[in-house]
């Protein structure tokens, strides 16, 4: 090994090492609610896996078909939604560089269906908006205005599928929106929720199947509460935590 070779090889070693170290250091995520300095809704549910673009085929097949060419990401950028981004090393090497929706708070999917129409690999299949299965939006009942003595309806107005997705349980405690299983998981409601940090969280369909039981149980429990219990809950816990999230952030409707 001569000097030249030695220098080049040490360069190689140091660059790869420094890049991998860098990768470890900067691997943090900034989402919308982080930017506002607030906790996410439903903090005990951690989002597992990635929420794929609309029309994505089932997961192992999607992984096999997608070549990471970036057509969907760039089309989303051209359409000014900027919802899609390529995944990093958060869930390991096997999911590297596939498109997913990172930040529902600021950049939700608008279901324009440009990406499945133009995907050259067939990893995204062109569907009707209603048949998309990206994920499932869950409402944090302790933060939602509709469950705590208010009429808000922002989420149902923002929803591109509207009345199909929302059930309303009107009572003296508010209009109580409930997102049923027709939800496609686009996340527009997350963006338009006026609460600081949003009261809605989107999880993948697979994860929803797992936590479905507890979530529905929670909802039924809430509905079955007596007036006094509900009063204590709303004024004792929920409203203070809503108020602590600060002023209502005014958001323009597109």
């Amino acid at each position: 090994m001569n000097r030249r070779e030695f220098i080049l090889k040490t360069l190689l070693a140091t660059t790869t090492l420094s890049f991998s170290l860098l990768g470890g250091c900067v691997n943090k995520t900034t989402t919308g609610s982080d930017k506002e300095g607030l906790l996410e809704p439903l903090p005990d549910i951690r989002v597992e896996g990635y929420i794929r673009p609309p029309g994505a085929v089932q997961e192992p097949l999607f992984r096999a078909r997608c070549t990471g060419c970036g057509v969907c990401i760039n089309l989303c950028h051209i359409a000014k939604y900027d919802a899609l981004t390529a995944s990093g090393l958060k869930h390991g090497l096997s999911d590297l560089a596939l498109p997913y929706i990172k930040d529902f708070r600021d950049h939700p999917c608008a279901l324009c269906m440009e990406c499945p129409r133009h995907c050259p690999t067939g990893a995204l299949v062109n569907l009707q908006k209603e048949d998309v299965k990206m994920g499932m939006a869950l409402i944090d009942f302790s933060l939602c205005f509709g469950y705590n003595g208010d009429v808000c309806l922002s989420c149902s107005k923002a929803c591109p599928l509207g009345a199909k997705v929302f059930d309303f349980y009107n009572s003296e405690w508010g209009n109580q929106p409930y997102i049923n299983e027709n939800c496609v998981g686009c996340g527009l409601c997350v963006k338009y929720c006026p609460l600081g940090g949003s009261a809605i969280k989107v999880v993948t369909k697979g994860q929803y199947e797992k936590i479905k039981g507890t979530y529905i149980y929670q909802f039924k429990n809430l509905m079955a509460l007596s007036n006094e219990e509900r009063y204590n809950m709303v004024y004792g816990q929920n409203l203070p935590s809503i108020m602590s999230r600060g002023r209502i952030i005014e958001r323009e409707y597109r």
Binding site: V26, N27, T29, T85, G88, L89, L96, K102
Partner: peptide
């Protein structure tokens, strides 16, 4: 815009 920084590093 939303992006995973470690992806840039990897690429």
């Amino acid at each position: 815009l939303p992006v995973d920084i470690d992806l840039i590093v990897y690429s």
